[in-house]
Design a protein around this nucleic acid. Structure first.
Lengths: 166, 166
DNA sequence: ACGAAAAGGTTGACATATCCACCTGTTTTG
DNA sequence: CAAAACAGGTGGATATGTCAACCTTTTCGT
């Protein structure tokens, strides 16, 4: 994944690093991204952030830029740049947003719809593959656990050391 | 974290994206990295990959470059560059490795040891804070679940579509 | 012992992500 | 209503992560 099959730290139990939660999650996240890229590259030249945006737009819930950006969980800056790349590659077009002149609406082209039709089933199969690797109990509690960790990761309030100024 | 407090997709339940496991994990990973950076920036100018290397070396299990690189879960390329940055900033020195001339040994300077003495407790407190956000059952199964997902993320063998060539 | 293959490291190129300054449009508030 | 505060978007700078080409050293097969 990273390079060759160097026995990644996820595989080496028995020592300290195996207990570092953020480290394990970072490693897992990297592997998942690599797997997603491996699927994308089989069917075209969409990058991962490009695919994230197309997927959200294809859901059809909302075509306003801010809603799409937040649903995709992408930073303002990266969203702007990725949208420009999608336009340049002919995957989307934009239209002004009447309700809020600061935003814009995003419309998928046929090219994007075709790509989505091919990729969505593969990514769905991958999601099923991942879930199948978990026990039913793990499947039930993985999302609440992720959510709990995400909330706990939002602050560093638990550090109240008065010597904050180094 | 990312920008201001834009309600990130992790918080919005009730729609489809909340069920996309890789997406949730990516978002969580980003939050954890931001949290770690927030802690690092309070006590100096160490970057996250720099800290990862120092932490591994400080564990003292092995001072050979390859062992450190793999334990830190860092790519060959990034490792090389980060090590150079650590040398330039005076956090480490290197020595030739007698056993294998291709590798080198890494030695922490006092500067690194001081930084580690300050940061290690804070990062440990953070780890405890994260684990405290989980229920005991979640704590028990989170590591096996991560491990199972990591293995499932290593291949795309489950896609045996003959139309691989797009 | 020899040459091929593998492992380790470096570098450059690029992809992804974050941060920040800035500008524009919108909402709030006096 | 006008000024201030705020939300949205853009672009540059930088941090982080990945990939591939290349070189050196080590290991392995014969």
């Amino acid at each position: 994944m990273t390079d060759d099959s160097e026995e990644c730290a996820l595989d080496r139990d028995g020592f300290d690093l195996a207990l570092l939660l953020p480290f394990q999650i970072t490693q897992l996240s990297a592997k998942l991204a690599a797997q997603a890229r491996a699927i994308l590259v089989r069917h075209g030249s969409l990058t991962l952030p490009q695919w994230r945006i197309i997927r959200v737009v294809a859901m059809g819930l909302n075509d306003r830029s801010t809603a799409i950006r937040k649903s995709a969980g992408i930073d303002k800056s990266q969203f702007s740049k990725t949208v420009n790349a999608l336009i340049a590659d002919g995957y989307i077009t934009t239209a002004p947003c009447e309700i809020d002149q600061r935003q814009f609406r995003i419309v998928l082209t046929d090219k994007a719809l075709t790509a989505h039709a091919v990729l969505a089933p593969e990514l769905a199969a991958r999601q099923a593959h991942l879930l199948a690797a978990l026990t039913p109990e793990q499947r039930e509690m993985i999302f609440p656990a992720i959510h709990a960790l995400a909330r706990a990761a939002e602050t560093i309030e638990f550090l109240n050391n008065p010597e904050t100024k180094d």
